[in-house]
Design a protein around this nucleic acid. Structure first.
Lengths: 147, 147
DNA sequence: GATGACAGGTTTCATGATGGAACCAGTTGG
DNA sequence: CCAACTGGTTCCATCATGAAACCTGTCATC
């Protein structure tokens, strides 16, 4: 049977994973955040086959994460650009990046890290704070139903 | 051909997705953070078939995200508990949850949100800050090679 | 200490998703 | 006008997913 759709889940995490929880989507968004816009750029960067890329780009557009825009270089081609909804995935990618950097060994000789572009300095770790400013950890939150 | 392994990728985001970028793993971690420990609890909560759940739990254990511990109720069964590495996925889940809550419509009548357990108050949005305290957005960071 | 139910799987099989390669139409550069 | 490039589509083999049946060890009860 087809994998179950989580689109109608009550849990917002499950709904998110339904949309961007597949193998390629977040990597496409990552590249888009780095400024990539063209089909061929994504294909080259990801090494994914073209039929799959076509399919993923189409769903991302359908979900309002990317949109098609006329090419910036004046050619007749079109480019994929992030919408506000797509750019809001930034924190998801940062969280994934910080976790990977901390817990997964990089290949020998090339360690990448995200830095503050303006100053070239390393970033702080993401922190979740309560309204009163306390930093919250895994045990300090709970899901509740709201009106 | 099998989906390409990203385990040796230079990008920490890609390495993370290689480990927890599949359909179920993060949902299992979400449930584990909520306190679930038993095979049957996960199966009931996720509605996944048992062979798939077996497989996912095994990889999560192999990756050091979960570990097997003797049951807390004194029975001979074993339970799956998060390691520190697994608990560190908290921010990834928070980021996914905040994005889903903001951009994906919940099913009618049941909106869930994450709150500060101690006070029942809503949380602040995750913020990424530079070392000097500036809040950084998608355009303000860049990946660099470090020694 | 037999017995039936439950926990936690494994096996089998059908079906859907993935990926490589070949092919193709519209665009561009020369 | 022709060749190469962009951005796909189609076809096919293979892999992963999922449902259901089965199986083994544990627990609760009598």
């Amino acid at each position: 049977m087809r994998r179950k759709s989580l689109a109608g889940a009550v849990c917002p995490i499950a709904r998110s994973l339904d949309v961007i929880g597949d193998w390629w989507s977040l990597l496409i968004v990552r590249d888009a955040l780095r400024g990539m816009r063209r089909f061929s750029e994504f294909q080259k960067s990801l090494g994914v086959s073209k039929n799959i890329l076509t399919q993923r780009l189409r769903t991302l557009v359908a979900q309002g994460i990317l949109e098609l825009a006329p090419a910036t270089d004046g050619s007749a081609y079109r480019e994929y650009v992030l919408t506000a909804k797509g750019r809001d995935l930034f924190h998801v990618l940062v969280a994934l990046g910080q976790w990977g950097q901390e817990h997964l060994d990089p290949p020998a000789g090339s360690r990448l890290t995200m830095v503050d572009r303006a100053r070239g300095e390393p970033l702080r770790r993401l922190e979740l704070r309560a309204r009163d400013g306390r930093v919250l950890g895994p045990g300090d939150t709970i899901m509740t139903k709201i009106a």
